[in-house]
Design a protein around this nucleic acid. Structure first.
Lengths: 143, 143
DNA sequence: TTGACGTATGAAGACTTGTTCAGATGAGCC
DNA sequence: GGCTCATCTGAACAAGTCTTCATACGTCAA
């Protein structure tokens, strides 16, 4: 664990390393594999423009499939497929009323990510401080 | 724009709509197509476990390619490809020193997203309020 | 019950995306 | 110069993803 001269060291397996200390620190700071996978799945869900639009739309409150499709300019079947995916990951939940299905956001973390991102989009680059503000506000309102 | 009885209306094109008002509101609240695309691209970048690990690693400060590879348990070529992508999207920047290349986070928004997510991972579900706190703190420290 | 409707689902196809391997580039060292 | 090393790049393949079409399911109204 102590510092060694650069240019040689290994990090468990036999991999080339320059700054062994740094590598060790980062390694222990890195979340478990499984956590990273979880997080990246969530980001992946937000990584599709169609899905992202659906979720942003749902920030306004619950909506049925056909309204979501209309509001986001997508086919109803496509929307249904996406919602299915989002439901499987517990990002949204469905409430059924007769033959209608109303969807709403179900994940506080995702809501937070969306808020942060929207705030960022609003005022170009700077974003951070105000983003956090507006995020906290909308989070309060979202309970 | 005024309310009409449910079950029939259209939203520009000829699409079935239940709550025309809601659809109209959401439509105007939705960011421009282009903004949504930008945002979803960023999320997509965070949506790969390998890339996500690289970025989390870079939260600790700048690192060279081989150390990143070692710390994240990935091949150096793979890492280089990913960094290239991240660089193209201005999420990271490279500083060259001799034959080494040192990468660092270059996007405040991405850093914020990472912080929020890590905070969320730490204390399971609740997350929101404390996530914002810790996020703001780390943002201050990150300038 | 029958038909229309909103939603859900399965399968197929085109399209992305990530990894790997092989080789190229350019900096440092003898 | 010639060698090694860190990084980059291109091509190819495997794997995953999104959309579409067709169809199935449950609900409501007549």
């Amino acid at each position: 664990m102590t510092a060694m001269h650069p240019a040689d060291a290994d990090a468990g397996c036999g991999i080339r390393v320059v700054d062994a200390d740094r590598v060790a620190v980062v390694r222990s700071a890195l979340p478990e594999e499984e956590r990273v996978a979880e997080a990246s799945e969530v980001f992946s869900l937000l990584g599709d423009p169609g899905r992202l639009k659906l979720l942003v739309a749902l920030l306004e409150g619950e909506m049925c499939v056909c309204d979501l499709a209309a509001a986001c300019g997508q086919g109803e079947s496509a929307v249904s497929h996406q919602l299915r995916l989002l439901r499987a990951h517990r990002v949204v939940t469905a409430r059924r009323s007769g033959r209608m299905a109303y969807y709403r956001l179900a994940d506080a973390h995702v809501r937070l990510l969306l808020d942060v991102t929207l705030a960022h989009l609003d005022h170009g680059e700077p974003g951070t401080a105000r983003a956090v503000e507006s995020t906290a506000a909308s989070e309060r309102a979202a309970s």
